[in-house]
Amino acid sequence: MKESIILAVDGGATKTTLTLRSIQGQCLFEKSTSGSNYQTIGVNAVIELLSNILHSAYLSTQLEPIHVAVFAMAGIDTKSDLETVTHIINQSLQSTPFHIEKLIIENDVQSTLIGLVENHPGALLISGTGSIVFGTDGKSKLVRTGGWGHRASDEGSGYWIGRQILKAIFRAEDELEPPTILKKILLEKLQIRSMDQLMAWLYQPDYTNAQTASISSVLQEAVSLGDEKAIHIAQSAAKELFSLVKATVTKLQYEDEAFKLFLNGGILKHDPYIRNSLQQMIHRTYPHMTIVLCKDNPIEYIVRRAKYSLKIS
């Protein structure tokens, strides 16, 4: 009997990774390319991107039977999104001879959570470019809080923090608020010298949300220098993220049983002030909750999700 083969795709907003693994964990193929959120780059662009990376995987391995394929994709927020992404994936798969026995298509955060907790209660908080929480009671209940995009929510995310930094700098420039060292640090980061140049950077034709999210990295330095505005932004970000967690565990009717909260995303991984502030809030309110900072590459959690689907099938 041939060993089961897993195909896992982590289709994020900024990066897409595809891997082929044996059920025992041997990596047969792995490749990354640019983001595959259809809401950002469009349906046809995602079809082309996935078709190319799937074709590369087949050419490299010459494998045809795939026992389970998990496409964990950003941008699946509604039933309509799921229908659109399902169409995209079906179109993309037509370009390869892969024969997939079990095909799973779901939101990337949901897929990651299942890979982390399997059939145990837990939640996953992500704060990167955006922010979102998925939680489960370990049975049939799956809930979501946040993740509605930068126009409606994403509080406590890199994009949200970037917006707060820009707002603080421009309000200080107008003398509506006290000066902040955020201006000096940001101009140095962007290698520009004036507010005029900052305006040009902000309103350039090829602007993206990731561009604003990227400037969140200056917050930590300003906090370490004791800048009051930076500290206020960091504390506000932690409070917003705590609100997402609190709403999620309330929906799950959490009552101090064994429960793991996983943290992931650039803000939570690389900004210790925000992460520590958040952890303090959680421990005060939920003293029995275990907090775990994710350390593996995201694709590893999608692989685990695929293996779990084979366990329960």
Rank of each mutant, 00 (worst) to 15 (best):
K2M: 04
S4N: 15
I5G: 12
L7M: 10
A8K: 12
D10S: 14
D10L: 10
G11D: 05
G11F: 10
T14Q: 08
T19Y: 05
S22H: 12
G25T: 14
Q26C: 10
C27P: 09
F29P: 11
F29S: 09
S32F: 04
T33E: 09
S34D: 06
G35V: 05
V43G: 01
I53E: 06
H55A: 13
H55S: 15
S56D: 15
S56R: 12
S60I: 07
S60G: 07
L63R: 12
L63S: 04
I66G: 04
H67C: 04
V70Y: 06
M73N: 10
A74Q: 08
G75A: 04
T78A: 07
T78K: 13
T78D: 05
K79T: 09
K79H: 14
S80M: 06
S80D: 12
S80K: 14
L82C: 05
H87M: 14
I88W: 04
Q91H: 09
T96G: 09
P97S: 04
K102H: 14
L103H: 08
I104Y: 13
E106C: 14
Q110L: 15
I114N: 01
G115M: 03
E118S: 10
E118Y: 11
N119H: 15
L125M: 08
G128S: 13
G128L: 08
G135I: 05
T136E: 07
D137H: 09
R144Q: 11
T145Q: 11
G146D: 05
G147D: 05
G147P: 08
G147N: 09
G149H: 13
G149Q: 13
H150C: 14
R151C: 15
A152K: 09
S153C: 13
D154G: 12
Y159G: 03
I161E: 02
I161W: 02
A172M: 00
E173G: 06
P178E: 08
P179Y: 07
P179C: 07
K183T: 03
L186F: 01
I192R: 15
S194C: 06
M195C: 06
L198Q: 13
L198M: 14
M199I: 14
Y203I: 10
Y207I: 14
A210Y: 12
Q211F: 06
Q211W: 06
T212I: 15
S216Y: 01
S216R: 00
V218M: 03
L225W: 03
E228D: 03
K229W: 00
S236I: 02
A238V: 02
L241H: 01
V245Q: 05
V245F: 15
V249I: 13
V249G: 07
K251W: 01
K251I: 01
Q253R: 12
Q253D: 12
E255A: 10
E257F: 03
E257D: 03
E257R: 07
K260M: 05
K260Y: 05
G266C: 00
G266L: 00
G266Q: 00
L268V: 02
H270I: 01
H270D: 04
P272V: 00
I274C: 07
R275C: 00
R275D: 00
Q279A: 09
Q280D: 01
M281K: 05
Y286V: 02
H288C: 02
K295A: 06
K295C: 06
D296T: 03
N297Y: 08
I299M: 07
I299G: 04
A306L: 09
Y308M: 14
